[in-house]
Amino acid sequence: MHETVWGLAAGARLHWREWEGEVVLFHENSANIHQLSPVAVTALRLLMDEPATNATLVQKTASCLDIDVDAPLQDDIDQLLSQLRRLGIIQAVQP
């Protein structure tokens, strides 16, 4: 079983809004609005730039945010990928 590569879902239309550091995302396809944590914002933007596996995304996110790769960050990324997938914002893509 290979490691899944995640990328933005085909046709996804996202609108971002930022107020004093808080980021809100409007997902036009589903008409859902989501408030994202800083980790989520960074990781999602990284995925929009380039599809990545879970492990790669953890490393890149940590690097972007200048934080350690630790269990809480891994948990956040696990949760984020699961939620973004359920929301139809990301999908498994060909590596």
Binding site: S30, Q35, P38, P72, L80, L84
Partner: peptide, 14 residues
């Protein structure tokens, strides 16, 4: 964001 127990994504409306 990293240290808190807040969800990474909070759906405000669905």
């Amino acid at each position: 964001g990293v240290a808190s127990a807040a969800p990474v994504i909070l759906t405000v409306t669905s």
